[in-house]
Design a protein around this nucleic acid. Structure first.
Lengths: 189, 189, 189, 189
DNA sequence: CACTAAACGAGACGGTACGTCCCGTCTTGAA
DNA sequence: TTCAAGACGGGACGTACCGTCTCGTTTAGTG
């Protein structure tokens, strides 16, 4: 039915913009459609599920885009340390700049649940699996298995992504200390 | 002007029940007021901000109640290990049983931060400060400062509260291993 | 549920006015409500059946008003002849002036059907029964029963109400001739 | 531009069938086109005026067909009485059988006049002119002019077509009495 | 016979209106 | 006075059509 992926895309991005401007609850489908240069009727042709389906699509889209770019950000890294540093730095930057996902999720958390549920895997698992190969190449303290270390690092990454605490993650030097001393300190040989 | 704290309380709990049953978006003020045995007009006397204020109050109320009970759960603990074990066990139990908190926390723990950012003090900080005295009494690996360790533990607690991963937190034995070997392993002497 | 008959009345008359101006198909509930100084939501509170119920009410209302005034117009008449003359004259005037009923019925005849169906009696029967007492006091040609004569006159009245043909019913003299010579000629002694 | 009169015809008849089944307001152009085995785009090629033009065409078509057949039904009649009897009998049968005309005529006969006023010549006039030759061959009561009698009979025919009242027009005997005693009684010699 | 022009099916699209639901405000009447 | 009861305006939602438009595809009809 969806002839033009362009319009679908335009709707998602326009909706994203509206949410960023007014918040999800203050964003009507009329607004979103108008911002996409499309009639409300057409919106329903691309998202028959209406508001729910549209918002889910926005979240999924932004979620994918975030991790896609995160992946790009750590593309060049060769060692565990640089992967962690570049990843944390990018994630922090992205999250601070784009608060939209937060906004959506804090207001309508149910959306995220279904989005992730259908993805089947949690974000933490995803990150853990991405880090695993690096850990297998790394010298670990004795008794520390790579899989456990990956899970531990994934949890810490997510935690610091959300709230940096006393660290300023926009300062590469501090990121470097955080990663090498704090995060890897407990597991690296 | 709020004459009866009882009615305010009844409204919050009735709303909580509705949210638990139908989700926030499917819960109307009519439903909530009726469930509280109160007219919609009265609801507006206690929560002039309407829907937003009511829902915020519900979340804040449940949030407070959760930590209040969490505190009770670790009341008798004397050592860092038992505090952590009892706390994690209780939190896991509470989250599994109470769907609403589950709804919020099951997503990603960092979401909670943004939701309660307006409280001025983050949950993580709260937990960290609670753990600090225990850490000051604990033998720590050299070079590990109690404050840093508290922050580290708080992050891990929040992470495991939201998603236990490969651990079954309803099994005290597993909780024991998780706490003593995994979480405290990196900081304890 | 309908607290204020005034608003119900206002809605009916506003709708009537809209229909008169733009025709039924070009009259939206938004128009009608606005013309009545009422919100569309309130319209549905008085006419839960929506458009159908509202339009039926308009037709029924105008129908009743028409016959109410017709009755008034023949109030003073004592003889069959004057009843017929005054009634025909009024009906002709009313129909020519208010074409709205015609407009509705020609576009959405189904409306009228249900309106009359629920009234249980046809207009013709109504008129016949009204004329009957006058006929019983009138000298009739032999073999003509009052009831049959009443039915005959009712049919002719309705026919001339809709289309006067070669008669000018706004001219009392012509009405007089039509009634006395033409209509009563066949039945009066 | 209308290439195929067949398709135009098919559209009208399919629309007629839909109206008969669901009523005009419940009949969409999609329905009508599908029933005619034609796309909605093609419908607009034959009826650029859309819904209005199509529905008008249906009514006009059925109107014409009705009188065409009525004419056939009285073809063989030689006398005024048989013309009236056969005509009334056919009209009654047709109206009872065909729901759509029933829908229109069952209300009040004069409505038809206004509906077809745009035809320039009213149905009543049509019938009157058809009856005139028969009346000119008939012995009339003194003082009764054939043209007046034709108009009178036309009015009565239309009236009885719409509502038979106490007569059962499917019984030839009753039709006979109605025509000869009642309708012609007042004008025949 | 190939080529063009038309009629046609299919369906996307903007737009209007419908009937429904809920919110936030306000009034009324009874305890 | 306080509260329930509920009317009301307003706004958004999801649905259903309408009328317009643009594509391919078939079908004639013609050079």
């Amino acid at each position: 039915m969806a002839n033009s992926p362009d319009q679908r895309r335009a709707l998602i991005e326009a909706t994203y913009a509206c949410i960023a401007k007014w918040g999800p609850r203050r964003t009507s489908l009329e607004d979103a459609a108008k911002a996409a240069g499309v009639s409300r009727a057409t919106l329903y042709r691309y998202f028959p599920g209406g508001r729910d389906e549209l918002f889910e699509a926005v979240v999924a889209f932004e979620y994918d885009r975030f991790f896609e770019r995160l992946l790009q950000a750590v593309q060049g890294a060769k060692t565990l340390e640089t992967v962690m540093e570049q990843g944390l730095a990018y994630a922090h930057r992205a999250i601070v700049e784009h608060e939209v996902l937060h906004l959506v999720l804090s207001t309508e958390p149910e959306l995220l649940e279904s989005t992730f549920a259908q993805k089947g895997v949690t974000t933490r698992t995803l990150i853990g699996e991405f880090l695993l190969p690096y850990l297998e190449l790394h010298e670990l303290r004795e008794g520390v298995r790579p899989a456990d270390a990956a899970d531990y690092l994934a949890r810490m990454v997510l935690s610091y992504m959300g709230a940096a605490g006393r660290w300023d993650l926009s300062d590469p030097a501090q990121v470097r200390v955080l990663v090498r001393d704090e995060l890897l300190g407990g597991i690296a040989a």
